[in-house]
Write a protein that binds this DNA or RNA. Structure first.
Lengths: 183, 183
DNA sequence: GCTAGCATGTAAACGGTTACATGATTAG
DNA sequence: CTAATCATGTAACCGTTTACATGCTAGC
């Protein structure tokens, strides 16, 4: 996921490591802090695999910077990952949001819509925390105050996301139809 | 977090590994699957550290079971972890929900309320994904369809959770006052 | 003189994923 | 006979966290 985040931000233009760190912190730092010990090795990996290009430039009143940019291969890898997320990237809230943050980079609205539909399918399946005899526990029947809270919050989130997905898909389908007409 | 989950479920009574796996799957398996390669080593660690007791019993038409139960030290460790969560367990949605699922095990409502208040403080700080010039980006100003969705969903979740926290804290405070009066 | 911000990295330890491995019972 | 369910484990690999390490500039 960190690698996807790096590729996603670099698709917007070259950045050096420190800038990247600030962007990532802006995206998810208040929830889960970014550590240098994860970021710099991830960058090194991407450079080694040819997905990212690194040039050294004098730093702005500090150590020299590594200016990073996406290679063509890096862009392909980013788009491939966005088009074909693993199942856990659809279901896990944290990873799904990472995907969502960069889904706008995909050039084809039909690809974007396909990913949203996978999420929609996941959300429409009746799921919950806590099962009794195979069926999801209803919030009203849950005796524990805190678990009742979990169910209530999850329900509100699910409702809002489903509503948004419907609207977003309508928008994307209109866009896809339009570009199809032009061709 | 897996270890907390194990301790939390075992506080409800003895279970064997396979039962534990089903419980954990019920709690979060639809979002993030549980793997044997994580579960069994975690159990072994807890047994080795004296937090969990293990007895072998003949299996129900299968391999022999390891029936697991909390030791007094395990119960103390569970309560300590629930009373004093790390900051990331307050801020990270996934970990926070794990905490919330077992917060009801704490005997003292005042302790429970203190944890909820930490979450409340975190949620009341103005936070968002995407910052521009240090300030959170408003959903209306975000040009990206998908990021607008993220902001919208996050806002709905935050609103619901804040409302629930207020109600839950009122309930807990009433309970705490009551028990104080009895003494 | 000190702190904050800029800028990058390494190394050990930890925990999780994935794959492999085994083997019994029960229902179709 | 075959698949599903019950039941437990190991080993290689991978990425993250945490801690350590360095060094410059600007502002108080």
């Amino acid at each position: 996921m960190l690698e996807l985040t790096i590729l996603g931000f670099l698709d917007g233009g070259p950045l050096h490591g420190y800038e990247l760190k600030e962007r990532i912190q802006g995206l998810s730092g208040h929830v889960r802090p970014v550590s240098d010990g994860a970021l710099y090795p991830a960058i090194t990996r991407l450079v080694k695999n040819g997905l990212v290009d690194s040039r050294t430039e004098p730093g702005a009143g500090a150590a020299p910077r590594r200016v990073l940019s996406l290679t063509p291969g890096g862009r392909t890898a980013l788009y491939d990952r966005l088009r074909s997320p693993k199942e856990v990237e659809i279901t896990d809230g944290q990873r799904w949001f990472t995907l969502l943050a960069f889904l706008g980079r995909l050039p084809d609205p039909a690809d974007q819509a396909a990913v949203l539909r996978r999420r929609q399918a996941f959300l429409s399946a009746p799921a919950s925390f806590f099962y009794e005899e195979g069926a999801p526990v209803r919030a009203e029947r849950e005796p524990d105050l805190f678990r009742r809270g979990m169910l209530r919050i999850a329900r509100a989130t699910g409702t809002e996301e489903k509503a948004w997905l419907t609207e977003a898909l309508a928008e994307l389908d209109a866009k896809a139809t339009e570009s199809h007409r032009v061709q």
